[in-house]
């Protein structure tokens, strides 16, 4: 798919995501919106993954380390035909539902359970190391939140990824600068994120606009060329991206739009999508 088409697809999937949240009466909407282009670029531009090759040992692997953005993940998995959107919308968070509020690998397309932060990167280290051991060419991807980087286990994984020269591993930080309690820099600052990963021996790519499919595409392509070390993309995104109603608002971390907000948000999505040429 053309990159422009993917940028437009991201807005369609934003609507699906908001619909899932409204239906389930809850969801981590802010981070869903910020991570959308990252997921779309991975699933529709970068990764060798589809329902047809879901059991292949050579498929690319993805772990949603920021598992709370599961509604965005569901919408992408629906668009990839792993899941059925109507089924997700009808059942998300409902009594007895298999569509719970964090990724679960009983569902097709989801490799590992997540929800507790700081697990995705070290798990991906194991997957990438297994690939090296077996001489397979698959790549391993994970997306972490920026608030998540306060978890010490992230840095344990970062050390091991460098130690084992895992150039088949690419981590993405959804750097939206907001977490539940407010600005990440006020809660536990890491404005020197690039230097931190750099000092751990990683190849670091700072993406100015982490909601740009084109910039993400270029960064992922660059990462593939780097040998002997893992790559992290610092994707500078906007929390709540897509509508002024929720953009850069910490209290939209977990939020259900009112009917009025919903109408405005959908209108904004349409406008933003149309503006993409």
């Amino acid at each position: 798919m053309e990159l422009l088409e993917l940028s437009r697809l991201a807005y369609d999937l934003r609507k699906d995501t908001v619909d899932i949240i409204v239906s389930g009466k809850g969801g981590h909407i802010g981070g869903d919106m910020s991570v959308m282009e990252i997921l779309v670029t991975l699933y529709f531009d970068q990764m060798n993954i589809s329902p047809e090759n879901a059991d292949s040992p050579d498929r690319d692997l993805f772990v949603m380390s920021k598992g709370h953005s599961v509604e965005a993940y569901y919408s992408v998995l629906c668009a990839k035909h792993f899941l059925d959107l109507n089924d997700v919308k009808a059942n998300f968070s409902k009594f007895g539902s298999k569509y719970i509020g964090h990724p679960n690998n009983k569902l097709p397309g989801i490799e590992m359970n997540s929800g507790s932060l700081g697990h995705g990167l070290p798990v991906c280290v194991g997957m990438a190391l297994a690939g090296k051991m077996d001489g397979r060419n698959y790549r391993v991807y994970t997306v972490m939140g920026d608030g998540e980087l306060a978890e010490g286990s992230v840095w344990e994984g970062a050390m091991a990824a460098r130690q084992y020269k895992l150039d088949n591993l690419c981590a993405v930080v959804d750097r939206n600068r907001l977490q539940i309690s407010g600005n990440t820099e006020d809660v536990m600052g890491h404005d020197d994120l690039c230097e931190r990963f750099g000092s751990f021996g990683w190849n670091v790519i700072d993406i100015k606009d982490g909601n740009s499919v084109e910039q993400l595409h270029n960064a992922f392509e660059q990462a593939k060329q780097v040998k002997g070390k893992p790559t992290v993309l610092i994707a500078n995104t906007v929390k709540g991206k897509g509508s002024a109603v929720m953009e850069n608002k910490a209290d939209w971390h977990h939020h259900v739009p009112s009917e009025e907000d919903y109408r405005q948000i959908i209108k904004d999505f349409e406008k933003r999508k149309e503006a993409l040429i």
């Binding site: 692997l61 590992m112 070290p122 997957m127 690939g131 286990s153």
Partner: peptide
């Protein structure tokens, strides 16, 4: 994995996921 028990278990899980 060095003195990093959290990492030990997560990496083991990643290995196991790949067979």
């Amino acid at each position: 994995v060095g003195i990093a028990e959290q990492d030990l278990v997560s990496i083991a899980a990643g290995f196991a996921h790949c067979g």
